[in-house]
């Protein structure tokens, strides 16, 4: 099985604090890999390192066999490493359709086109509309994003990543803040992701992790505690002690 994403001895220091402590991860192509850990375990730092928002103090990151440690954020996206955010990061003044059209155009290297009106390439608009329909957002696609209900914004957060055609998709708590009765929409979307897309799920919600993931890595204090199949992790006494035994999900 080929390796989609791998880190080797990744370290990130913030002054005296070591937020990421020699993390070596291997994620296989097509995997549904969950990254769990209590609050402050360094999950978000790790995702920021993987996507290029932060530069590691030490170590390397490989995407499909290429060293991407020094690549910029946008260059990684163009190679297919795409993320979503734990807190919605959307274009509040733009409509979902505009946002997705832009993402699709950028993927086709047409983002610098200053001559044609945005949306004049019909195939891009069609593709954007297609994704919006799949995400149940077609009825609100012309509205300004800032006025969408939270649940819709959460879906748009993922739709925007999908428009970048990820080969490796990093989902940072995709269901965060979504009320119980709307969660199934997110879960259905995740279940429908193409099988050849590698998904890394950073999650707090253990039900979601156990239903979605086939492999789990546990992060504690910035370091990898253990890694294994779902059952293995569920039984692991160490994991139960540091994570499952903790007071709650928040």
């Amino acid at each position: 099985m080929s390796i989609a994403l791998a880190t080797h001895e990744l370290v990130k220091n913030f002054g005296g604090l070591r937020a990421t402590d020699h993390v070596s991860l291997t994620i296989h192509t097509g995997a549904r890999h969950a990254l769990i850990g209590p609050n402050g375990a360094g999950k978000t730092t790790l995702i920021n390192l993987l996507t290029g928002v932060l530069t590691p103090s030490q170590g390397t990151i490989m995407l499909e066999g290429t060293n991407i440690t020094r690549l910029s954020q946008h260059a990684r996206v163009q190679r297919g490493l795409v993320r979503t955010f734990q807190i919605n990061q959307l274009f509040a003044d733009m409509s979902p359709l505009q946002s997705l059209c832009l993402a699709v155009s950028e993927r086709h290297q047409q983002g610098r086109d200053w001559w044609h009106v945005a949306g004049s390439n019909k195939s891009f608009v069609d593709e954007a509309e297609d994704i919006l329909t799949r995400f149940g957002l077609s009825d609100v696609m012309m509205q300004q994003t800032r006025f969408l209900p939270y649940g819709k914004q959460r879906l748009l957060e993922i739709a925007l990543a999908i428009a970048c055609k990820p080969r490796v998709l990093l989902l940072d708590e995709p269901a965060a803040g979504v009320p119980e009765e709307e969660r199934h929409e997110i879960i259905d979307i995740l279940a429908d992701l193409p099988k050849d897309v590698t998904v890394v799920l950073i999650e707090h919600d253990m039900d979601l992790v156990f239903s979605f993931a086939d492999r789990i890595s546990v992060l504690v204090n910035g370091a990898l505690l253990t890694e294994g199949g779902v059952d293995e992790i569920a039984r692991d006494p160490q994991v139960r002690a540091v994570y499952l035994g903790e007071s709650g999900h928040e």
Binding site: S72, Q89, S105, E106
Partner: peptide, 26 residues
């Protein structure tokens, strides 16, 4: 220019530079 895709990408950068980077915009 402001109505082009480039113009749209500028609005994206202005609106949310973090996300602009995350959809592949330099």
């Amino acid at each position: 220019i402001v109505h082009s895709t480039f113009g749209l990408s500028l609005r994206a950068v202005k609106g949310n530079i973090l996300r602009a980077g995350a959809i592949g915009i330099s």
